[in-house]
């Protein structure tokens, strides 16, 4: 993972460091830059309605892995034509609601089932 060498010849000057900063700190900051690069890959999210929630005509979507789960919730609300304030509860694997600031990438790595991240949605609190 993340074994690329960042091309930082141009970025060095932008780092907020004074010249007496140790070489190791500079190396560490470059490493951090590498880990901060957003994962451009996409993963498949599969939406499954629970209870009375309306079923979606299409329920497989590819979504960029670096998106936060909040983006998935917003996408789902839009697809369902939900208005602000309409209740919508989302779960992974019929089990728990993730934090909205967690990334799709993290959730996918930990919870994907057969290559899909399964997102259940409900109009009432289901496993609350």
């Amino acid at each position: 993972m993340a074994s690329g060498s960042p091309d930082d010849s141009g970025r060095q000057a932008a780092l907020p460091w004074t010249p007496d900063v140790s070489e190791s700190a500079t190396e560490a900051l470059q490493a951090l830059d590498t880990y901060k690069k957003k994962d451009p890959s996409k993963v498949v999210v599969r939406f499954k309605a629970v209870g009375n929630a309306p079923i979606m005509r299409q329920n497989f979507y590819k979504i960029t892995a670096s998106n936060r789960f909040q983006a998935v919730i917003q996408f789902l609300r839009k697809e369902l034509g939900w208005k602000a304030g309409d209740p919508l509860f989302t779960y992974i694997n019929l089990a728990f609601s993730p934090a909205p600031d967690d990334t799709v990438s993290n959730l996918y790595k930990s919870f994907a089932t057969e290559g899909h991240l399964i997102v259940n949605y409900s109009t009432t609190a289901a496993w609350g």
């Binding site: 992974i92 694997n93 089990a95 728990f96 609601s97 993730p98 934090a99 496993w127 609350g128």
Partner: peptide
């Protein structure tokens, strides 16, 4: 609610289900 969600997610990570929490 967010706290319980985190506990359940941790439970799922550990055991593959949230039976202990539920």
């Amino acid at each position: 609610q967010a706290f319980m969600g985190q506990l359940k997610e941790a439970d799922f990570i550990r055991w593959g289900n949230t039976k202990r929490m539920t």
